[in-house]
Nucleic acid binder design. Structure first.
Length: 327
DNA sequence: CATCAGGGCCCTG
DNA sequence: CAGGGCCCTGAT
């Protein structure tokens, strides 16, 4: 069924210099995300695959700096032809964009310096940036498999898709899946996608592959230059993108901090608990409180609360949260 | 065993 | 703009 494992045994290295303050772990690893077999993490080390301009790479990032003097060693594993310096530069730029390495967070901290709700998260995660490992297309695949289901099934759908369309690559003693490009989905069919247990999402996955495969230029680069309101409209016009997904996109992919019009049930439950210590507070109430407190920084602010909570969960049992994470 | 909701979205009326 | 339907799966 799945393609042969591809060994990437050559490597080139580059140094990345994020703007301080920079938290390596907080930026590269997001404990609230469901596990996907295209990445791995341990303290100060992060691996992920990259399908960039139809080439597959294995990336490894190493923290060789500190929060105040950041420095990251990036290794690019490849096979066959070595990427030329222009390609390496493009990959570095892409990584800096996706992981938001060139943003100065000081204005955010200064603006919210006296906020008592954020204080603990700030002290633990100073320098944490919002980030994504994915291109726009890849991100849409992830949000599609997460719609209207529980985490366990999202994980299963992702695995099925990777074993059918992805490429298993081997580098630095890791075996990770690399993403496919939309054209590979188009060689398949909606029916075949359904066999991968993605259910009615087969239609969405196929139509998104159509939009991105046949109309490459219309996306990513062009879309990034749109004004905010147009961007939201454009994203919502993509088949399978609704109010919940557009929010994730605007924040994680486009790094938009002040835009939140919709609070999905999952976030609603969690913020009910951490802001009010109640089981279920009305979304409108939560949204206006978030806006009142954190204004133009609100998305980033709640990201700190969210990830801080999930980091705590790694070391300590949080019973009410376990109940919400249906595995 | 049957029924139902789950980290939405599309489509119809 | 409200509400039914959708694939599948585990929980009840």
């Amino acid at each position: 069924m799945n393609k042969l494992t591809r060994k990437l045994d050559s490597v080139v290295k580059r140094t990345l210099n994020p703007i301080a303050p920079f938290s390596f772990d907080g930026t590269f690893y997001k404990p609230s995300h469901f596990p996907i077999g295209d990445k791995d993490f341990e303290t100060d080390i992060y691996w992920q695959t990259l399908n960039y301009q139809d080439q597959i790479y294995g990336l490894k990032f190493l923290n060789v700096g500190s929060v105040e003097v950041p420095k990251v060693d990036m290794s690019i594993y490849y096979n066959r032809t070595e990427p030329d310096s222009e390609t390496i530069q493009k990959i570095s730029n892409e990584i800096e964009l996706r992981f938001n390495l060139r943003e100065n967070l000081e204005p955010f901290y200064e603006g919210l310096i006296n906020d008592d709700v954020l204080r603990d998260a700030f002290s633990r995660w100073r320098g944490m940036h919002v980030s994504t490992a994915y291109s726009l297309y890849e991100f849409l695949v992830v949000t599609t498999v997460l719609q209207n289901t529980v985490v366990r099934r999202s994980v299963q759908m992702m695995q099925n898709l990777f074993s059918r369309f992805g490429t298993l690559i081997h580098y630095d003693n890791k075996e990770l899946f690399a993403f496919w490009v939309p054209e590979e989905i188009l060689l398949s069919s909606e029916d075949e996608l359904r066999e991968l247990k993605v259910g009615y999402r087969a239609k969405t996955l196929y139509r998104q592959a159509l939009e991105f495969g046949h109309n490459k230029l219309a996306y990513q680069e062009n879309i990034e230059s749109l004004e905010k309101a147009d961007l939201r409209k454009k994203l919502l016009s993509i088949y399978g993108v609704g109010p919940a997904t557009v929010q994730y996109l605007l924040f994680e992919v486009f790094k938009n901090y002040d835009d939140i019009e919709h609070l999905p049930p999952w976030e609603q439950k969690i913020f009910s608990k951490i802001l009010y210590d109640e089981e279920l507070v009305e979304p409108e109430k939560i949204l206006s409180e978030i806006d009142r407190r954190w204004g133009k920084w609100k998305m980033l602010a709640i990201h700190y609360l969210f990830e801080d909570l999930f980091w705590l969960r790694k070391n300590r049992d949080i019973p009410w949260l376990e109940k919400l994470i249906r595995l």
